[in-house]
Computed example of a mutant assay.
Amino acid sequence: MTTTPTADLSAAGVSIWLDDLSRERLNSGGFKRLIEDLNVVGVTTNPSIFAAALKNGDSYATQVGALAEAGADVDRAVFDITTHDVAQACDLFAAEAKRTDGADGRVSIEVDPRLSRDTAGTIAEAKRLHAKVQRTNVLIKIPATVEGLEAISETLAAGISVNVTLIFSLERYRAVINAFMIGLEQARENGHDLATIHSVASFFVSRVDAEIDARLDAVGSEEATALKGKAGLANARLAYQVFQEQFSSERWQVLEAAGANAQRPLWASTGVKDPNLPDTLYVAGLVAANVVNTMPEKTLDAMADHGVVEGDTITGSYAEAADVLDKLDALGVSYQEVVEKLETEGLDKFVTSWSELLETVQTALDAAKG
């Protein structure tokens, strides 16, 4: 009996989500191939994805025209357009959500990134997005900034499922898990059914290598060169170790007994940026049970074409992964400095993309007004 790499990936416990969404893709039926042939069971979005979709697609013209006629400002137009696409995608994946009791079949939409340092603003926006989409399989994305931690807890406490995004460091990941458990504890006190609440923690991978490899090039030694392309996998594998530890604790067992679902690790930024590295590196190298891998279509197609799944490639690798980080430290490559820089840059990129999105929609509104 023949199988495929993406089917093998799913069988190994990895949920495949697509890191892309556009109305053109929704209207063309393009998701059908991804679901049926490539085992895609969810979707993630971000400001960059929406900016590209709006800039390159003509399928938004009718809605933009109606919004212009109604006198909508650009912020309302962006809110209505993006939530419309996410609601449609949620409907498309509703059967998968039902089949998996809400674990998969998920579609993510991010709060306005300009609110990433505003706890109260993030909470309000998360609730507004959830109310607008009106689908049980939507995930509200909240960046894992220090200010975002309380927002994550409060949003979960309201019974809203959350995708925690932009995680780079193991220390912050532990804080995210704590915020998740606080949210569930509060949700239980608020009378919510914990079984209906789901969450993923999006741990970014390739950006870690991009930043650290540049620093290793600057070091220039043989030892430094030997470490290139290894930090991203090592960091993510140690994150999975944290996941295993935290979700076997007594605190978690109490929540699990009350019906709670574990917050699964999600591998994000899995498109390889260095052409010298295998294009399936951050997929085949991060296989384990109960994880999500959200891939850009190019990476998904590469995995489907020539990816090799060799079972669990995380469990049992922790000592080797820790050794990679220790060697980086010995070479003067500061892990803390790198992850702090990546968080700041990640937020800046999201805000820049959001500004591009606003500019694109404003131009379309102005054109529609004649």
Results as ranks from 00 to 15, higher is better:
S161W: 00
D366N: 14
L277W: 12
D104I: 11
V200H: 10
A7N: 10
L184R: 05
A268M: 01
G316M: 09
I182C: 06
L34S: 03
F350A: 15
K327V: 00
L233P: 10
D73L: 02
A234R: 07
Q134C: 02
F350V: 12
E154V: 14
E147G: 13
G229N: 04
D101I: 04
V283L: 04
D217R: 13
E150A: 15
T83A: 03
D348G: 06
V283P: 01
E69T: 12
F93T: 15
D209E: 10
Q186H: 12
L34W: 06
G259C: 07
E96G: 04
L156G: 03
F247N: 07
M181Q: 15
P278V: 13
S22G: 15
A66M: 05
Q244Y: 00
E222C: 04
D19I: 05
D279F: 12
L238V: 05
K369A: 15
V283C: 02
G285F: 07
V107I: 05
A268R: 07
R215G: 11
A87P: 13
A187E: 08
A257K: 13
D305V: 00
V272M: 07
Q244P: 00
F168R: 11
K369M: 08
S355N: 15
A103V: 15
D80S: 09
N56D: 14
L156P: 01
T145L: 13
T4A: 11
L21F: 15
N276F: 02
D80N: 06
E340H: 04
R135H: 06
I35W: 06
L358Q: 11
E320P: 08
A77F: 08
A61S: 15
A226V: 03
E337D: 10
A70L: 02
H198N: 11
T3W: 07
F243G: 06
